[in-house]
Each structure stands twice: as C-alpha cells, then as structure tokens.
Amino acid sequence: MNIDFNKNKDGLVPAIIQDEITKNVLMLGYMNQEAFDITIATKKVTFFSRTKNRLWTKGEESGNVLHLVDYKLDCDNDTLLISVNPEGPTCHKGTDTCWAEANRATFGFLSSLENIIEERKNSANGESSYVASLFKKGINKIAQKVGEEAVEVVIEAKDNNDELFLNESADLLFHYLILLQAKGFKLNDIVDVLKSRQL
C-alpha cells in the first residue's frame, strides 16, 4: 500500500473512521506515516492531532478506543477508510458519532419500510391502509397472517416458479416486519440477538 503522505505539505492524510458492523461513519481524523504505522502495529487507531500537534491514540484518556479491523486506500492514494470496532462512544462529546447520531445499523429500503409501518401503526387520523387495518385487528390476526405467508413460502419453494417464490417471500418479510412492531420491536433488535449468538 503506497499512501501518498507527501501530497499535502503537512504530511497528513484524512482517515475516515467507519464502524465495521453498522457501516456508519463515526469520525474523521488525520494520520501521518507514524500514526498509520502505530495503528497497524497496535490495532488501535492512532491519529496525528493537529490541535495537540502530536500523535494521539483514540481513547487514550477516555478508554473509548477504536479497534482496527481493516483499512482501504482511495483511488488517489491520499485518503484512508478505516474500519473499526468502537469501544464506547466515538465523539469527545460522548455521542456515538461526531455528528451526534446513534450508531445503529440501518437497512436501506427495509428501514424506510419500517418507518412507513410505524407511521401507519401510529396514525392518529384513522388511516384506512392495509397496515393500519392489521394493527386494528390485533396481534392474533397479525401473527396468523405471518403463519399463512410462511406456509405459502414453503409451498412455492418446492415448485420451480421463482417469481411466485420471491413474491411470497416478500409478503412474508413484510408481514414479519409488521409483527415485530406489533410486539414493540424492529430489525435492529433481531440483529442484536443474532450478534449475541456469534460468541
């Protein structure tokens, strides 16, 4: 890896810090050659602090270290993407990220769908959507619907019609997301359980 520390006159390159699991950007720091070498050797992310004008290992005072998982260099060889497992909050202000955002996984379209389901569930104007009607019918009806969709997925899995299988799978996932919220949970709660089983 040929990092171009000489591109800028200060000998520093930006280091974007990303959570290995959630893929959220946690912070931006700067590294010189020595900071990079120490990071690789210790597996704890070390920066060159422009404010302190010295090397600085994240968490050296707070204990909130960033454990190195992987690193990549951009196409111009002058910016690092550092994947980490953070220990505690990353920002010195005590938040998970330097943008004061929670470091929770998001699932793109599925997270947007969860938000729509939640809006329909909490709709105060008596919305007449399919989702709202299921919530009005209660947990038994929602659970029954998940069971029905699961059976249909199994049936279609045994046939050769991929389109029907995918459609029934989408129906099952959609109704499962509704059931999760009916029980007061979201996908992140399931992810937490799965992560706990990796040990």
Rank of each mutant, 00 (worst) to 15 (best):
residue 5 F to Q: 05
residue 6 N to G: 14
residue 6 N to S: 14
residue 7 K to Y: 12
residue 10 D to V: 10
residue 10 D to C: 07
residue 13 V to R: 09
residue 14 P to W: 01
residue 14 P to Y: 01
residue 14 P to F: 02
residue 15 A to V: 06
residue 27 M to H: 05
residue 28 L to R: 05
residue 30 Y to P: 11
residue 32 N to V: 08
residue 32 N to F: 07
residue 34 E to N: 09
residue 35 A to I: 01
residue 35 A to W: 07
residue 47 F to C: 07
residue 47 F to G: 07
residue 51 T to W: 00
residue 52 K to E: 05
residue 59 G to H: 01
residue 63 G to Q: 09
residue 64 N to V: 09
residue 66 L to R: 04
residue 66 L to D: 03
residue 72 K to G: 02
residue 72 K to R: 15
residue 74 D to E: 05
residue 75 C to M: 07
residue 75 C to E: 15
residue 77 N to W: 01
residue 78 D to E: 07
residue 79 T to Q: 13
residue 80 L to V: 00
residue 82 I to L: 01
residue 84 V to G: 03
residue 85 N to D: 09
residue 93 K to I: 15
residue 93 K to N: 13
residue 95 T to Y: 13
residue 95 T to Q: 13
residue 100 A to N: 15
residue 101 E to W: 08
residue 102 A to N: 10
residue 102 A to Q: 09
residue 103 N to P: 03
residue 105 A to K: 12
residue 105 A to R: 14
residue 106 T to C: 03
residue 106 T to E: 14
residue 110 L to N: 11
residue 112 S to K: 11
residue 112 S to W: 02
residue 120 R to K: 15
residue 120 R to D: 14
residue 128 S to F: 04
residue 129 S to E: 07
residue 136 K to A: 15
residue 139 I to S: 13
residue 140 N to L: 09
residue 145 K to P: 05
residue 154 V to M: 14
residue 157 A to C: 11
residue 165 F to S: 04
residue 167 N to W: 03
residue 169 S to H: 08
residue 170 A to V: 12
residue 171 D to W: 02
residue 172 L to N: 04
residue 174 F to I: 08
residue 176 Y to S: 14
residue 177 L to D: 10
residue 178 I to D: 11
residue 179 L to G: 10
residue 179 L to Q: 10
residue 185 F to E: 04
residue 188 N to I: 11
residue 191 V to A: 08
residue 192 D to S: 15
residue 194 L to Q: 10
residue 197 R to L: 14
